[in-house]
Design a protein around this nucleic acid. Structure first.
Lengths: 169, 169
DNA sequence: CCGAGTGGGTTCTGTTTCAGAACTGTTGAG
DNA sequence: CTCAACAGTTCTGAAACAGAACCCACTCGG
């Protein structure tokens, strides 16, 4: 029973990591969100080696995260912009930033993400539009789409909000 | 790398990636959320090479994502469980799963994440507790904590009350 | 025409990290 | 004594990464 069908999102995570699961792709996407579009600008902003940037951009284009758009001919030059799928990676970036803010080593902590209109630090929540409520990670369940009558055995262990390292010492 | 003060969370992302920014750490955390605790179980569940698992677990422990708890003596054996900081990585995992669901190549798509009580597919939103509203990625701003008067010049308009990220292109 | 400059890469070299198979060491059970 | 279970460690070779240098198509300035 290595990989059962109740593998709750593991393959999905791996699929995403196959696209952005290296050291640079996420940072490239973030640079794109900040408005960077040109090869040399990515290069300088990120401090990434040029061959690697070439390869990463090609892969992001292949996976539909970015598009290569010519912005002049003579000679033809291209810029790279995020597609809708690329912008849709924002929650990943925000989750990474928030985790660092809340649980990082606290060094060099100078930037926070806030709700632009009011300046409040944002929270990232899971939202159910049916219940019109937000909830935490313990209320998440995985369901197998191949079996429409929701197999209830797929419930998450859910480590009730306090996975205390208590080992009865 | 000459990161200006308007570097909106870049260093924070890098800090997080330094902890979980390799091919396996996120998957280890996910396995931990599913209740896996023992070395060999991680090994079998993930198909990870043992030396790498050793190193990853050590690093996760070092960074406070997991703890090493002895569960027997004679011989002393340990199990690895997520700390609170580890559970707090859930939003990252969910964001990765959701992205794959919405923008992946659509192959082998069998599992969805739902709100456990009602079975609705969950959405991941940014939430402002002051405004009591959810919003998309265009309403996020980065502020520099070293400069308390956060330049209140309005950023792009906020797609208020719309949990779906608007990809303005 | 010539030479320098710009934008977007590719080719070379190392070095660091990853992956896999096999091995070690402790201990209780048979 | 041998075996199996658990939690690793030591080897190896493969891949990814980093940096410097080079290439090519075109522009501009003279």
């Amino acid at each position: 029973m290595s990989d059962g069908p109740r593998d709750q999102g593991g393959e999905a995570i791996e699929r995403t990591l196959r696209v952005i699961g290296d050291r640079w792709s996420i940072l490239i996407v973030r640079a794109g969100l900040r408005g960077i579009r040109r090869f040399d600008d990515f290069c300088e902003d990120l401090g990434i080696a040029r061959p690697i940037l070439t390869e990463r951009l090609r892969r992001l284009v292949d996976h539909g995260v970015m598009t290569k758009v010519p912005y002049q001919r003579n000679p033809v030059r291209h810029e790279y912009r995020l597609t809708e799928a690329g912008v849709a990676l924002s929650p990943v970036l925000v989750a990474l930033v928030r985790w660092s803010e809340d649980h990082g080593d606290g060094e060099g902590q100078t930037v926070s993400l806030v709700h632009a209109p009011c300046g409040t630090e944002l929270e990232q929540a899971f939202w159910c539009r049916t219940c019109a409520t937000t909830f935490g990670p313990t209320a998440i369940r995985g369901v197998d789409r191949r079996v429409p009558n929701g197999t209830p055995e797929a419930t998450e262990d859910a480590s009730e909000d306090a996975p205390e390292p208590e080992a009865g010492h």
